[in-house]
């Protein structure tokens, strides 16, 4: 035990080479924060706004509803759009409510959890959106094969329904793959250490 006391003593009395003067400290606190976590939130907000702006940036977005009408899917496509925007609103509210709660004066575990929960709202939104998109695409695809005259004619000619499904499958996997990679690079590196720390603190409590 004496050894530990000695260590504590040395610890308490340690001196550091650099001692800032009051003027230097004053200068330091005027500088800009280099915290990298804030970028996660800038990106999250950008993601939400990207989803809001889809009708404006996708060419012929509104015309596509006429096409759904021809497939007898008009009500379905409107319902999906409405659900999409209700989800967006819900997750945005959750995101901003958590964001406001983030405080560096919180306990370490509290601080980690609010940061991660804020980001989780965005992740859950993405999963729900992708899920709905997938369901929507499948239904449209199925109906198109039944009602789209061009596709019906194409099938009769070449009998290549398997080929079409195969190509669609590849396109969907590619989109999900690109999203996955993007997410890994954008968020994974910043958030994984936080997740590890949160887990460690949770394990202490169990």
């Amino acid at each position: 035990m004496d050894e530990l006391k000695l260590l504590k003593n040395k610890w308490a009395n340690q001196k550091f080479d650099k001692q800032y003067s009051a003027e230097e400290l004053n200068g330091l606190i005027q500088k800009k924060s280099k915290s990298s976590i804030k970028y996660i939130f800038y990106l999250s907000v950008a993601e939400f706004f990207l989803y809001i702006s889809i009708p404006f940036i996708v060419p012929n977005y509104y015309e596509s509803f006429d096409y759904y009408k021809s497939l007898n899917l008009y009500e379905f496509s409107i319902a999906i759009s409405v659900i999409g925007y209700i989800l967006l609103l819900y997750f945005m509210l959750r995101f901003f409510r958590n964001y406001k709660r983030i405080s560096v004066t919180d306990s370490v575990k509290g601080h980690l959890s609010t940061i991660l929960n804020t980001r989780r709202a965005v992740n859950q939104y993405i999963y729900f959106s992708l899920g709905i998109l997938l369901v929507f695409l499948c239904v449209v695809m199925y109906s198109a094969l039944l009602f789209d005259e061009n596709l019906v004619a194409f099938q009769e000619k070449k009998d290549s329904i398997v080929m079409i499904i195969f190509i669609i499958g590849i396109v969907i996997s590619l989109i999900i793959g690109v999203f996955g990679l993007l997410y890994y690079f954008l968020y994974g590196r910043l958030l994984n250490p936080l997740k590890k720390n949160e887990k460690e603190l949770m394990n202490i409590n169990h």
């Binding site: 924060s33 280099k34 915290s35 990298s36 976590i37 560096v104 004066t105 919180d106 306990s107 370490v108 601080h111 980690l112 940061i115 910043l190 250490p193 936080l194 720390n197």
Partner: peptide, 16 residues
């Protein structure tokens, strides 16, 4: 005491 919280939170979460 207050400094420990802010300092540790910065070292552990905000700053990478």
């Amino acid at each position: 005491t207050w400094m420990y919280r802010v300092g540790l939170n910065t070292a552990i979460t905000l700053y990478r």
